[in-house]
Amino acid sequence: MKRRAWIALAEASLVLAWAGCTQQDLEPPPRQAEPPPDPDFRPPAGFEKLTLSTTPYLDPEKLNESLQPLASYLSRYLHVPVEVVRANSYAHVGTLMKEGQVDLGSFSPLSYVRAKENDPGLIPLVNFISDGSATSAGYIVVKESSPFQTLEDLKGHSFAFVDPDSTTGYLYAVALMRSRNIDEKTWFSRTEFTGNHEASLQAVYDGRVDAAAIYQGALPALYRNKGIDPLSFRIIAKTRRTPKDLFCVRSGLPKEVVTQIRRAFLALTVRTEEGRRVLSPLNVNGFTQVDEEAYTEVREVNAQFAGKK
């Protein structure tokens, strides 16, 4: 991890140097304009508890564990207990929030786009940054020992998707296949939704499926959680990059609470011990304010392929 941090730092310096050296009409890099969380914050009347949920993009048990430091952190700034609520599927988070059972939830880009369609009051709050980027690519992986080198090699073999609301684990993988004239419904002998990225990787590792679509963070997550070497897998294709997951708050949450939560998220950094304690389990570098524009492409791809399932 320490080495990764150094690399991220070097990269950040490089990006800054790059920006400094290129044409002068470039915008300066975005900065966190938000002030730190208010230390004198007191919860408004009626706000007694914050419920937190997330799309089950990794193993749900492990995910709940990794969310605990975040829950404690938020609780410290909000002065109310923070409870983690488990969601059954990607779409379930949106449903829970719409019903008011969950106040704060994390979404994949696609599940956010779809939840927002159903619940326009949903408020996007902060974006994940990981691997030094607010975007990530999806990988199509096979087992290293398998003979498959390309998507085309997978004709007649089995394939695992994550969830119909997963961006890299489903939508962008389908878009990639369609761009190569591969219809996932007929090309493969069998497809299945495994529920999360780790489960998909595990299925490939176990030989239950020949290939899977995952997000790039699943490989280190599987290594962390199960000790499976990422080099057990071979990447044979990559999807276009999508925005990272994001946190949203439900409509109706007091405005000062929303502001305090956002400030608390944006204050998180791996440069502090507390930040590392919260962020490391999530394999996240930090958070940034949501750029709604970044989801335009996801909406377009969703509109293009959602009806072709």
């Binding site: 990006v15 990530s136 690519a137 790039q216």
Partner: peptide, 12 residues
């Protein structure tokens, strides 16, 4: 670190 490399290329 494929993810790191991807992020580098995407950022640059």
């Amino acid at each position: 670190d494929m993810a790191g490399l991807d992020a580098l290329v995407a950022n640059v």
